[in-house]
Simulated assay, not measured.
Amino acid sequence: MKLAVYNVENLFDRAKAMNLDTWEQGRPVLEKFAQLNELLGQIDYSAADKTRMAELMAALGLEKSDTGPFVLLRRNRGGLLRRPRDGGIHIEANGRADWVGSLELRDEPVNEHAMRNTARVMMDLDADVLGVVEAESRPVLAAFNTEILPALGGTPLRHVMLIDGNDERGIDVGLMSREGYPIGRMRSHVDDRLANGQTIFSRDCPEFEVTTPSGVRLVILVNHFKSKGYGSTASSNARRRVQAARVAEIYRELSGNGVEHVAIMGDFNDTPGSAPLAPLLDDTDLKDIFEHPAFDDGGWPGTYDLCNASNKIDYILLSPSLFERVQAGGVFRKGMWPGSRPRRWEPYDEVGRKQDAGSDHAAIWADIDI
């Protein structure tokens, strides 16, 4: 069985704020969006809340219209605000129950070359079971599978599953598998919460049970931990540590219930040896595929951007019973921008510019005799 994971960075549409030339350009927009969304969701609005809402709306380009350059304010019913003729924004609602609507990030199509290069990576991986990170939704993932892959000469995978998670930007995690590898029982952790009511997972930590042609069953958990992109370093690190600890707990529960074959994979947004990932990487018997003698990192230790050691953030972790059955493994980077001085690897011919890359992430794969 060839098991792989790939952060596709959206397939058809991506939030405009995440599609800017650099992360530093989009980060302030996403931070303000998150702050405003949190304020709008409160049961009661204080005077200070209303003042801050108005400031954030103006900063997001909503002073004159409900449609800003990067966000869209939907007001279905009720009176949230008014815009005086002399300018500014006045928040009239006193709480969330006073209006019906939502704040959304505006999308724009993904670069067509990038879309095709994402498909090429999937085709060349030729995985039997593929974990997918940052897909918009199950319908989008299914459409990409049945429309884009065949258009480039690829064979669609038989099974496609994705459960909507907690992220409002349309970046969820899912699983795809070939004929002979059906997806059986599924369990979502989208609603796992801390004692204070905060959801643990930024997206979800779904459990997918997959059966191989030989009849062996394994459970695969796909993850996308809190990024370092926005919010304070301390809060981001704390959130990732909580997520890692909960995944470790789920793994121990599975093992305690007699599940021998477990794979945990995805974009963990942190490096081996980091404190946030310690509960998962250090405090369990899971093994990183990078540690296997048969694994080939292609000459670079990382999985993101230019693949330096500080960019090793994507993982396939295997239970001991799976790790001992690994025959080979590697990092697939042909869909990534290789840099220019010098080029670090040979990409597809179609990756002529950084924005043409299928993703900023490499795909990781493991051949397992099971």
Rank of each mutant, 00 (worst) to 15 (best):
E55V: 12
P338T: 13
G88M: 13
A309K: 15
D305Y: 05
L125M: 10
R27C: 00
T146C: 07
Q355H: 03
A366H: 03
E350H: 00
D192K: 08
P320S: 13
F201V: 00
E38S: 15
Q35T: 05
D314W: 10
K287E: 07
S227F: 10
V242I: 15
V160W: 02
K50N: 08
S232C: 05
F290W: 15
Q243T: 01
V222D: 11
N19L: 00
E324H: 14
G180A: 02
A275Y: 06
L11K: 03
L286K: 09
H361N: 08
R344D: 03
I264L: 09
A143M: 11
G358A: 06
Y181R: 09
G339S: 09
E209D: 12
T146P: 10
V121G: 01
Q25P: 00
G165E: 08
P338A: 11
R333A: 10
D86A: 15
D367R: 11
G299R: 02
V8D: 05
F295D: 05
Y6C: 05
D349Y: 02
A328M: 03
D296A: 10
S214E: 15
A363H: 10
S202L: 11
L221K: 03
L11N: 02
R185N: 14
K334A: 09
I91A: 13
V219T: 15
S102R: 07
S255A: 07
D13F: 05
S235W: 04
E38Q: 13
D66W: 00
H159Q: 04
P150S: 07
P301A: 08
R74Y: 12
W337A: 04
D126A: 15
E104A: 06
L30F: 11
N111Q: 10
S236D: 12
E207R: 03
A366G: 08
P276D: 08
G154K: 01
R27F: 00
I183Q: 13
P338E: 01
P276F: 13
G299E: 14
E112I: 14
P293H: 07
V133L: 00
E179P: 04
E253V: 14
S359N: 02
F33A: 12
P338R: 12
K2E: 04
P213Y: 15
L80H: 02
N117T: 01
H159S: 10
M265E: 03
E134I: 06
P279Q: 00
S102M: 08
A59C: 03
P276E: 11
E207K: 02
I89Q: 07
D86T: 15
N76K: 11
E63C: 00
R85C: 02
N269W: 07
R241Q: 13
D369H: 14
E147M: 15
A294F: 07
G78K: 12
K16M: 14
V216Q: 13
E112P: 05
A309R: 14
G352N: 13
S321L: 12
S319L: 05
N117L: 09
E134W: 03
R85V: 04
G197L: 09
V100L: 11
M115R: 15
H261L: 12
M161K: 13
A17L: 11
G258W: 02
D107C: 00
L175D: 03
H361R: 12
A97E: 14
N7P: 04
F33N: 02
L306W: 09
E346A: 14
D367I: 03
G26R: 01
